[in-house]
Design a protein around this nucleic acid. Structure first.
Lengths: 107, 107
DNA sequence: TTGACATGGAACCAAAAGGTTTCATTTAAA
DNA sequence: TTTAAATGAAACCTTTTGGTTCCATGTCAA
């Protein structure tokens, strides 16, 4: 059971607002759990669970340094999300295609 | 209570794989619930619930036509996701920035 | 070597999710 | 006007989520 147990994918990982905030924190720099927890109102254990989920989705990775474990952002999996999005982009960002789409709905 | 009860946001709405499939189906054309359901192995009621969630996130909208209700894709909310993503893009798609980031982690 | 500090992990919990079945209602069709 | 089709909606059920508390373990510091 490596880090890629894949019980959680990117879509699920970013669905929770707390986890999105954790990711945002980690864009600054590598941080240990206690430090991350200090930015939230929930317990350290709760944050640890969120980190595990982010870790399974491979959005973060942790390395032990002394008695603390520092987590860092691993944004690569977001690429899957980007590709997913690009498929839908043509349905809204491109007005011409959108009009074409609507025209087809009517006929 | 309009369609924007906002209990579900875009992030949560697309977290479920079934809902993502429903969205994909609707890129083709407007479809009634029973038609959508025929593409899945779960009950019509279950699909109706997914549609409600997608509807609250304003990713789809339904209009009644005769005895059926047809749903269509409303991709605009995905723009929020796109903007969220763009913030992280610089941390992985741009190799130079990534190296810079890693350098800062080490110092 | 003795405490603090930083985590890890187990045991529990309430609420939310995702489904199902059943029954009522609206509407097209025979 | 009787039926069958297409939904809407309520009542329930089982897992999963997001949290918590409590206890064990590893590690830095005095």
């Amino acid at each position: 059971m490596s880090a890629s147990e894949q019980k959680y994918d990117v879509f699920q990982a970013i669905a929770d607002p707390t986890r999105r905030q954790v990711l945002e924190l980690l864009t600054e720099k590598e941080l240990p759990i206690s430090e991350i927890t200090s930015h939230f109102s929930v317990s350290r254990t709760a944050i640890a669970k969120h980190l595990r989920i982010l870790s399974e989705a491979e959005l973060v990775s942790g390395r032990k340094v002394g008695r603390e474990r520092r987590y860092r952002l691993q944004p690569e999996p977001l690429n899957e999300l980007k590709q997913w999005l690009s498929f839908y982009e043509k349905f809204w960002s491109n007005k011409l295609l959108k009009l074409k789409y609507e025209a087809e709905q009517d006929k």
